[in-house]
């Protein structure tokens, strides 16, 4: 678990008075201004931001102490970080920050090492854990209590109960016969040829 988390990036200067274009990575884009002063990667420099406008896919902001285009240009590409402690704790016990989960070692219910959490995605069917398996393969597991019974962020481990056929070959692809006709599915309304 990293103590410093990237929440935004300065992508360029805006105008000649030192304003910057800011790209937010937070779940709620405007939340980037609620975390107070942000820091650079080393934590040595602090950036107090004030929102001044909105662009197509970015915010316009003033950075305290930056008053010229040259100074703003010098900040281009700077990743802005926030301390993990400044993020509010999740309200639900089954809610976890991606930043807390990424990098955690994964083991199976019988204690065998399984891999490491690489990323978390939500493609519309619930959250999915991407795990770097010990065999160097990448596997995906749905983030459910059945497949991921234990998430111990403080203890630094995730326990998974992978489906038995996770690594099994998918079986033969469907034959021509199987693909030849579509299945008739009964629906409540609609008669053939009624023009609807």
């Amino acid at each position: 678990m990293s103590s410093r988390i990237v929440v935004a990036q300065i992508v360029g200067a805006h105008g000649v008075h030192g304003r910057v274009k800011l790209k937010s990575f937070t779940g709620e884009p405007e939340a980037v201004f609620a975390y107070g002063p942000l820091t650079d990667a080393s934590g040595a420099r602090s950036f107090a931001l004030r929102k001044t406008g909105t662009g197509k896919d970015h915010f316009l902001a003033e950075v305290e102490g930056v008053r010229s285009k040259e100074a703003a240009d010098a900040l281009r590409g700077t990743l802005l970080h926030v301390e993990r402690d400044r993020l509010p704790e999740p309200e639900d016990e089954d809610e976890f920050y991606h930043a807390d989960l990424i990098g955690l070692p994964v083991e199976t219910t019988d204690g065998t090492a399984f891999g490491t959490v690489k990323a978390i995605f939500d493609f519309g069917a619930g959250d999915v854990l991407e795990i770097d398996h010990v065999s160097a393969k990448t596997v995906h597991l749905p983030f459910t209590k059945a497949e991921v019974p234990v998430v111990d962020v403080k203890g630094g481990r995730v326990v998974v109960n992978p489906p038995p056929n996770l690594f099994a070959p998918a079986g033969p692809p469907p034959s021509e016969e199987e693909l030849a006709g579509e299945i008739e599915v009964e629906i409540d309304d609609g008669e053939p040829g009624d023009g609807r």
């Binding site: 990237v6 779940g27 991606h98």
Partner: peptide, 13 residues
């Protein structure tokens, strides 16, 4: 697309 995790949360169902 692997973006930055930032303050995004995952919910276990």
């Amino acid at each position: 697309f692997y973006g930055h995790a930032a303050d995004k949360k995952a919910k276990r169902k």
